[in-house]
């Protein structure tokens, strides 16, 4: 789970690039994510909030950060705890 590597959901179309990783199992739609993806797992109703293209997702403790590069129906999670959107303060374009 190296920063820069891309992993895919096994329950939906979601793909993410890992920006920061410390420890734990990364999940989407209730199923573990993997490099190959497309595992055909059922989307868990508890983890069906969806992922949004270009958004960054983090855990409360700040141990992980994922960038969504392909959106899907599943909710991103770390060890069963849903990740949250990383809020960025909008800045004026400077270049």
């Amino acid at each position: 789970m190296k920063p820069g590597s891309r992993i895919k959901s096994n329950a939906c179309d979601t793909e993410v690039v890992i920006i920061k990783y410390t420890a734990g199992t990364i999940q989407c739609g209730g199923a573990d994510m993997s490099e190959a993806g497309g595992g055909g797992a059922d989307l868990s109703a508890d983890f069906a909030g969806g992922s949004i293209m270009g958004k960054r997702y983090v855990d409360e403790a700040g141990t992980i950060e994922l960038l969504c590069v392909k959106p899907g129906k599943g909710t991103l999670a770390l060890d069963g705890a849903a990740l949250v959107l990383k809020e960025a303060k909008p800045l004026p374009a400077s270049d």
Binding site: P3, G4, I19, M53, G54, K55, R56, L67, A88, P90, L91, A93, S94
Partner: peptide
């Protein structure tokens, strides 16, 4: 490094904004 420039972009630009 790739990581320097990517950090700058992700930290200051909202995708598709």
């Amino acid at each position: 490094q790739h990581s320097n420039l990517v950090s700058y972009i992700l930290g200051t630009v909202e995708f598709g904004a």
